[in-house]
């Protein structure tokens, strides 16, 4: 069978209610315990190049009220996302979510205002793996002392870039890193240090 380019042949969650609930709890845990790897319920066949975890996060959180911006290489997923979530896309500065496979310039994303810091974009970053990369040390709410986190696919100067985001607090960007069927969170409240 040939699959048309618009990706519509790829299904969403097998069980929309309970898979979305399980995935939400994984995402909630990811942001409540920064750097912890949390397993989502994945759709049976996510459309390439979407990782199962990225697909699950989109199906769980995106809808017409909270659209996602899809830059390359995800631009072709528009019809699949629209069919399964109702999101017809948004500009990068207006989107509730931005899906990316490389670290974007965070200045392009909405960081909220001091009075309404929740009017910010959540970055869904698809990375090759959540383990095996350069070690980062995390501190902050959700972490008892320190948490080690070593994802692949972050820029070499990530700690410095994150510090710029951290300085905006309570404004800022929250990040969900996705690889395979796992998600890890970096809420704006977390402090990131490079391991010595």
């Amino acid at each position: 069978m040939t699959v048309p380019d618009d990706g519509l042949a790829y299904p969403g969650f097998a069980d929309p209610v309970h898979d979305a609930q399980a995935s939400f709890r994984a995402v909630l845990r990811a942001l409540a315990r920064p750097g912890a790897l949390c397993t989502v319920a994945t759709p049976p066949a996510p459309p390439p190049p979407l990782a199962p975890a990225s697909a699950a996060v989109l199906l769980t959180l995106v809808d017409a009220d909270a659209p996602v911006h899809l830059p390359p290489p995800f631009a072709g997923l528009g019809p699949w996302v629209a069919f399964h979530t109702g999101s017809t896309g948004a500009d990068i500065g207006d989107a509730a979510f931005v899906l990316a496979d490389e670290w974007p310039d965070l200045a392009l994303l909405a960081a909220g205002t001091d009075e309404v810091p929740e009017a910010s974009t959540t970055l869904i970053l698809q990375v090759p793996a959540l383990e095996g990369g350069p070690r980062l040390i995390l501190r902050g709410p959700g972490i008892e002392a320190t948490q080690t986190f070593a994802p692949l696919g972050l820029p070499a100067d990530f700690a410095a870039r994150w510090a710029a985001n951290r300085r905006l607090y309570p404004r800022g960007i929250d990040v969900l890193l996705c690889a395979g069927s796992a998600v890890a969170g970096l809420p704006r409240s977390v402090t990131v240090l490079e391991a010595a």
Binding site: P16, A32, D65, D174, P187
Partner: peptide, 18 residues
């Protein structure tokens, strides 16, 4: 489900800004 998604997005923001 639409209502739950709205609540869930609010909860995630709430966790990110204690």
């Amino acid at each position: 489900e639409q209502t739950k998604r709205m609540l869930r997005r609010a909860l995630l923001k709430a966790v990110a800004i204690p």
